[in-house]
Design a protein around this nucleic acid. Sequence first.
DNA 1: TATTCATTGTGATATTTATAACAATGTTAT
DNA 2: ATAACATTGTTATAAATATCACAATGAATA
Lengths: 205, 205
Amino acid sequence: MVREKTIGRLSLYRRLLTELQGEGPKSVYSHQLAARAGVSAAQIRRDFMILGYSGSPAQGYEVAKLLDSITHFLDAPESQGAILVGVGNLGRALLAYFGTGRARLRIEAACDNDPKKIQRVIHGCHCYAMVEMPEVIRRQSIRTAIITVPAPEAQAVANDLIEAGIRGILNFAPVRLHVPEGVFVENMDMAVALEKVAFFARQHV
Amino acid sequence: MVREKTIGRLSLYRRLLTELQGEGPKSVYSHQLAARAGVSAAQIRRDFMILGYSGSPAQGYEVAKLLDSITHFLDAPESQGAILVGVGNLGRALLAYFGTGRARLRIEAACDNDPKKIQRVIHGCHCYAMVEMPEVIRRQSIRTAIITVPAPEAQAVANDLIEAGIRGILNFAPVRLHVPEGVFVENMDMAVALEKVAFFARQHV
DNA sequence: TATTCATTGTGATATTTATAACAATGTTAT
DNA sequence: ATAACATTGTTATAAATATCACAATGAATA
């Protein structure tokens, strides 16, 4: 019943609303948020239906209350951690990217099997040895993982992660992971994305 | 008429088929490729309908001919270049990631406004000053761009890129770009992706 | 040669996702 | 007060996407 695309947009709306809040306005209309999000106003109102918060036809939505509603819907009651596996170029870039803030969803640990990285702190995140991974995941009750290892290792890493209790994987390795029922995988396949863009760059002329 | 999702999958199939070719088999059945791609066999056969290449009910698809057909459909007749703007952590990681091979689609140039990076070669890619960007794009007939600049700069960069002739953008900045009709944008919003994974890691229990 | 069989290509159908449309709301202007 | 208006919430509709189902194919076997 929960639409996958809707979840992604709610996350986007939350970020946009947080930015908006910093600019002053206490309330916002669907069409204003729509313009920032690059979606239709109808889409926004439809997405908000699952939140259980209603705006007013005259004032629109109260930014603060809307943010509360989205956060209540999206986030776990307690703060949630993630683990990143594979501290190569891309892994480090992601550690830096996610480093700042995000009280509710942080990368709490990294893993690699390169001795030069193990027990180091990289962009503010402690790097453990691969063998320590299951214990870290269990100790910190982590359910979300980011895979940034080379393609040939990705499936084995995924298996270990799932074995240790991971239930959601953000996969940057250019491989389709085979996972059991109940494990959610989101693929960030950058090679595919770039080829898609190149294709439509020609079509859309 | 060309389905966006289909293009992405064709790109994926091509990569999987190239891997497969290295393993020996000269032909492949839809269900074999489906297993590797993590989609249904029917999905594969349907996607292939736009290629104008038919397999045989007995032999399946000839890998080499299939690869030719996909490449003929996806790629430009001449090789196509891309430009990357923003050589920060993520930008460098992508230069490394896309560095190897890809004869038909290469990152031919990078841009930044940090004097320490300008006129350097980073992961095999020459870094130009931002002011040189339009000229590089025009000279090398580049139509595809990757944006990895900080969020506040992304829209201005996009405007300049489009002005210079870019028609497809792979956007890593956590901002929705406003672009004119005829310009294709693919957002790689990693914060949104991670939150989505975290959400479904809890739901899918 | 006739039969069996797994597979293909594609029309029909289902599901997901997005848009359109509009009554209900409540503020503002008259 | 009342009318005019822009906006909301939601139902109805459309478009995009995925699955199902099966006749047609042609190699392998008998």
